[in-house]
């Protein structure tokens, strides 16, 4: 009788002990996550919710708590005139907004594409073995390490129409015949922004890709050598497929970054219609034009766009953030 009872207890407690262990593990994991979650909720979650809320009100900057709820009026509203014509207003029909969307997309696509291609080339070079490779690797990060405000100001001086070194250089080389106001001219403003951004961000891209390149086993290249694969073919048939996961992750990071570009443009080409991006225009509305609710609506839309793009990209590219896919 006693023996039976004992045996019964043992059998029953066994799984209990295991689940207890599991429980304590889950609890420990939660405790480690809590500081992070709290910090995120405070610095990201709460402002995001506030912004979304503001976008549904008619709040103004001088009375942040006195706004009334107006529904989606900031996004789209319409009135029917006596003549029977319907007039739309709101963010979704605002040409200035769509101009900014176009600028942002153009900037994001061109800069990320060029940064990826150039970054890949730089990474391939840095992956080769040569003397002083460590120093070059460190040196190439310098543009990335300089704060954007500083490098934007630096470039804005270099591109200055009166005293800029670029104009001086190009004039002396005979590339241009008269001084160009690079950042102020509508035709060249976007190009100037792109050049500075590419100069600044390619190193980051290169380093991310380099990390991927170093994961490719060396013996595979030797097998390719014995198979007699042309180096160009090795790149497209062997290297590229193997670093694809790393490149995908790098491209996502950069794309998200580029979509909310603000500081560079704010410093380099303020008030140029040709380069105004979504972030720039929403800041303008929020603080300069006293259209706080309208600016909030723009910020919200920008957030939604980035969220959708990220979702699509991850889904289409089947990206795995652990760098796997092999």
């Amino acid at each position: 009788m006693t023996a039976e009872a004992t045996a019964g207890t043992v059998v029953r407690t066994q799984p209990q002990i295991q689940s207890e262990l599991m429980k304590s593990r889950v609890a420990a994991a939660m405790w480690f996550l809590v500081p992070m979650l709290v910090a995120l909720a405070i610095v990201a979650g709460w402002p995001l919710l506030r912004t979304i809320y503001f976008s549904l009100t008619n709040t103004s900057l001088n009375n942040l708590y006195g706004g009334d709820f107006v529904g989606f009026k900031n996004y789209l509203s319409w009135t029917t005139l006596k003549s029977g014509r319907t007039v739309f207003s709101g963010l979704l029909v605002d040409p200035a907004w769509w101009n900014a969307v176009g600028n942002t997309l153009r900037f994001a696509v061109i800069s990320v594409t060029l940064e990826t291609v150039i970054g890949m080339i730089v990474a391939l070079v840095l992956n080769a073995e040569f003397k002083g490779r460590g120093i070059v690797r460190a040196a190439i990060l310098i543009p990335w390490a300089i704060p954007t405000i500083v490098s934007a100001k630096m470039w804005s001086w270099m591109l200055n129409d009166q005293f800029g070194i670029i104009n001086d250089l190009f004039l002396n080389l005979g590339i241009i015949s008269q001084k160009v106001a690079w950042t102020a001219t509508a035709d060249t403003a976007m190009t100037a922004v792109l050049i500075v951004d590419i100069w600044k961000t390619t190193p980051f891209m290169a380093l991310l890709i380099l990390a991927g390149l170093q994961m490719v086993p060396k013996d595979v290249y030797e097998a390719a050598k014995i198979d007699g694969v042309h180096p160009v073919k090795v790149f497209f048939k062997v290297t590229l497929p193997l670093v694809r996961p790393a490149v995908m992750v790098a491209v996502i990071f950069r794309l998200l970054d580029a979509m909310r570009i603000f500081d560079l443009i704010y410093v380099l080409t303020p008030n140029s219609k040709a380069t105004k991006t979504m972030s720039v225009i929403s800041r303008e509305n929020l603080f300069d034009f006293d259209k706080f609710a309208y600016g909030s609506a723009q910020s919200t839309l920008l957030f939604l766009m980035i969220a959708v793009m990220t979702g699509l990209y991850i889904w289409l590219g089947k990206v795995r953030f652990d760098g796997g896919d092999r």
């Binding site: 595979v220 097998a223 014995i226």
Partner: peptide, 17 residues
């Protein structure tokens, strides 16, 4: 590739993809 050789590596060196 011009020597008419084939090599089998200790680590196999198969193309992973």
């Amino acid at each position: 590739s011009k020597r008419g050789i084939a090599m089998v590596f200790q680590s196999y060196a198969l193309y992973p993809h």
